[in-house]
Amino acid sequence: MDALKSAGRALIRSPSLAKQSWGGGGRHRKLPENWTDTRETLLEGMLFSLKYLGMTLVEQPKGEELSAAAIKRIVATAKASGKKLQKVTLKVSPRGIILTDNLTNQLIENVSIYRISYCTADKMHDKVFAYIAQSQHNQSLECHAFLCTKRKMAQAVTLTVAQAFKVAFEFWQVSKEEKEKRDKASQEGGDVLGARQDCTPPLKSLVATGNLLDLEETAKAPLSTVSANTTNMDEVPRPQALSGSSVVWELDDGLDEAFSRLAQSRTNPQVLDTGLTAQDMHYAQCLSPVDWDKPDSSGTEQDDLFSF
């Protein structure tokens, strides 16, 4: 819950932080000083300027060897085509990944977070970031790969997607708890209302004896509580940590079903599988986004697919 609360507080303090972009060759504004600060901008989305290598189908939802083989196929196909790589912007948030063309600003792909089953910074092609997700059109699994400016960037994108998945799962947990509370309150309110109706004398007997209905007592009954809980029953509950912020979080049926399955089948359902080692994760978390744009010590960066 700490990640969720800190993310909400950060967004309320400075929503404009989320509009910064990394990996864009110096076009961005001043960047936060450390990885923790940038992680807090996830709610509205972190932007990464990358190059799209392509996509291939895979048979399993996750796995280092599986993704490595898929990336190898994608890279080989991209090299064989001889075409310049498409420059894209990857927007990562707890909602998922939005992929747009840098030149036309046209939407290429919009992947809900619950469809993503794996992401990684490839070991062999260490400047490549990739994720595996279920197609929104059918049940097939797709591996999408992107060329980053350097290994640090690939690791940073991988960690960002993993963190977005974690925050999304926490949102789901909060929403589920809130819905259970509202359902319980609604049920209790309905029981109270039913009890009051059972003990209320029939209207005919009131008229016969000349008694008047006590409207004041009726007004004191917990009807307002019942209506408050039943009027918006169809509205999706939102985490309290975000009250007053500009973010509107809505959970669709697909996300609810997917996270429910994860909660039942996995020990740590909030953790998205990645190909990063503990050492890689520690190294990337210690980086400032400013470091992502620094040239690798191995030599001059080449803006070309064939540089790796």
Rank of each mutant, 00 (worst) to 15 (best):
C286Q: 10
Y131M: 11
I12D: 10
Q187F: 01
G26I: 09
P32N: 15
L159Y: 11
N232Q: 06
V236H: 14
T209G: 08
K51S: 06
D37W: 09
L223I: 05
C143P: 00
L251H: 10
S16C: 14
K84W: 02
D101E: 14
F171R: 05
L66Q: 15
M55H: 07
E178L: 14
V236F: 11
G210A: 10
C119P: 01
L43F: 10
A195H: 03
Q264H: 03
A278F: 09
S49M: 13
S245Y: 03
T300K: 11
E65K: 08
P289M: 08
D101A: 12
S81C: 12
F48Y: 08
L262I: 10
A284V: 03
T277G: 09
I113M: 03
L90P: 00
A80F: 04
V161C: 05
L213A: 07
G194C: 11
E178V: 12
G26Q: 14
T209D: 14
V271H: 10
A130M: 02
V247G: 13
T230Y: 07
S140E: 10
L262M: 03
T267C: 08
P61A: 06
A76F: 04
D253N: 12
A258C: 06
E142P: 00
G210E: 13
L66E: 01
T200V: 02
L262H: 02
E257D: 08
V167D: 13
S227K: 06
P32H: 15
E177F: 09
L287E: 10
M124I: 11
A241T: 10
S260I: 10
A156V: 05
N211S: 07
D122M: 00
W35H: 04
S81L: 07
L85A: 00
G299Q: 08
R151P: 07
N229Y: 12
K179V: 07
F259W: 03
K30G: 10
R196Q: 11
H144E: 00
I71S: 00
K220D: 13
E257K: 12
V88T: 05
L85K: 00
D280E: 15
Q197N: 11
A68H: 10
S140D: 13
S140H: 15
K294P: 02
C199N: 05
Q173R: 14
H144I: 03
P94G: 02
D198G: 07
G24H: 07
Q86N: 13
R238A: 12
W35V: 08
A130C: 13
Q60N: 10
A241Y: 09
P295T: 01
H282L: 14
K72A: 07
A219R: 09
K152C: 14
S175Y: 04
E188D: 08
S224C: 07
N102Q: 01
Q197S: 08
N110D: 07
S298D: 09
R196N: 08
N102F: 07
E180Y: 13
D122A: 01
K152L: 10
F146C: 10
G189A: 05
A145R: 00
I12C: 13
N138V: 14
K166I: 03
Q155D: 13
K79I: 04
L305A: 07
R266W: 03
A162E: 04
S14C: 02
L42A: 03
A258F: 02
V157D: 00
G244T: 04
V111P: 06
T38Y: 03
L57I: 11
E65H: 14
Q155C: 07
K19E: 07
A68Y: 01
G8A: 03
S227D: 13
K294M: 12
D256R: 03
Q197W: 01
C143Q: 13
L251Q: 14
L213R: 15
R196C: 11
D122F: 00
Q302M: 09
F171M: 08
H28A: 15
S227R: 14
E170V: 05
A241D: 15
R39L: 04
A284L: 02
L50C: 01
D293A: 07
P202N: 05
S307F: 15
L42F: 06
L305F: 10
S21Y: 11
A69P: 03
L272Q: 07
R73I: 10
S135K: 04
T209H: 09
G299K: 11
G54N: 01
V92Y: 01
S224M: 08
D303A: 07
T36W: 14
A130I: 05
T277Y: 08
L90V: 11
K204H: 07
E44T: 08
Q302R: 08
G189E: 07
V247M: 06
A80Y: 07
E217S: 04
R9Q: 09
Q302G: 12
A3P: 08
N232P: 11
K79L: 02
S245G: 10
L4P: 03
E33W: 11
L103V: 12
S14F: 00
M124G: 06
I74T: 03
E301C: 07
K19F: 08
L193A: 04
N34H: 09
N110T: 13
I98N: 04
P32S: 07
